[in-house]
Simulated scan of single mutants.
Amino acid sequence: MSVVVSPESGLSPAGWVGVVTLGGSAIVTAPSASTAAIIRDALAMLPVEAVADPDALREVLPVARVLGPAALSYVSPAGFRPAGPGAPAVEQLPSGHPDLRELEKLASHEDAGEAALDEITSPDFVVRERGQVVAVAGYRAWPGWTAHISVLTAPESRGQGLARLTGSAAVAHALAAERLPQWRARVAASRRVAASLGFEELGSQLSIEIA
């Protein structure tokens, strides 16, 4: 486990502590040296696999609020299980296409924030119903050739396999670009979509605010 001082870390909201565990290792970002010292001493008591467990953290730290945890999943070209034929047509749009704004309005603030469609750098892969975009997926190019997948489906269109359909198109595009697709999911439904595409859960991420 590594604890580092990073006031502008992208792993958590400003002023919070970010935690990522992956493959038996963990990195923890703290907003200041004093917070890092507190974190380092407290987490030394925990095994690495417990560092992203909110209940375990509350035992050793004065935790005020928690975001997550979210599962981090990855898929290789050999493990990828793309969506089959016969589904609704998937349309490819340029990144940041204005038709996505209406979909964001239909979704909850939390879902739209998690999807972060404005951060997608790949093309947007969408499904329409009566001309309106009701599902979209794409990815943001991260360092290390990682493709961070974003998926968003309109509330009234969920349960129809559209997240799997658009997600499959985004993953296929990422693999063709020789990138490693990463799927971050907090809710069980999103984790099931990732698993159906062949993703394996290898880590987790959460953010904590220290009281």
Rank of each mutant, 00 (worst) to 15 (best):
L11P: 01
P88E: 13
R81S: 15
S9T: 13
G86P: 13
V4E: 12
Q160E: 13
E49T: 09
E59L: 11
P13M: 00
A174C: 11
E129F: 11
R130N: 12
R128D: 14
A83N: 11
S34K: 06
V126M: 15
W142G: 05
A37E: 14
L175T: 13
R186S: 09
D118A: 11
A107Q: 01
L117E: 10
A71Q: 08
W16R: 10
I149G: 09
E114T: 07
V127R: 07
D55R: 14
A185P: 03
F80G: 09
G23E: 06
R128Q: 09
V4K: 05
P88F: 07
S150N: 06
A116R: 14
P77W: 10
P82G: 12
I208K: 00
E49F: 11
F199K: 03
A154M: 07
V171D: 11
L67M: 13
A194M: 04
S95E: 06
L165K: 02
P69E: 02
K105Y: 09
R40K: 15
A107T: 05
P85R: 15
G131L: 00
G138D: 06
V3Q: 04
S6K: 03
G15Q: 10
T146F: 12
A70W: 14
G159Q: 08
A141C: 07
G24H: 10
V134S: 04
V28F: 03
A107F: 09
E119M: 08
P85A: 15
R40C: 08
E178D: 14
I39K: 09
V133L: 01
S150G: 07
S204T: 12
L103E: 04
H97S: 04
E200D: 14
R65I: 07
E156D: 13
P85F: 13
R164V: 11
S168R: 01
M45V: 13
S34Y: 04
L175N: 12
G198I: 12
G113F: 01
V19A: 05
V134D: 07
W183T: 03
A169S: 07
H173S: 15
A115R: 08
M1E: 08
S6F: 02
A30S: 02
D99R: 08
S9Y: 06
E8D: 15
V4A: 02
R40F: 10
E59C: 10
S157E: 15
L152V: 10
P31E: 00
V63G: 01
R179H: 10
V63I: 15
V133C: 02
A56G: 03
F199A: 08
P98M: 04
G15D: 14
S207K: 02
P85D: 15
K105S: 13
V75I: 06
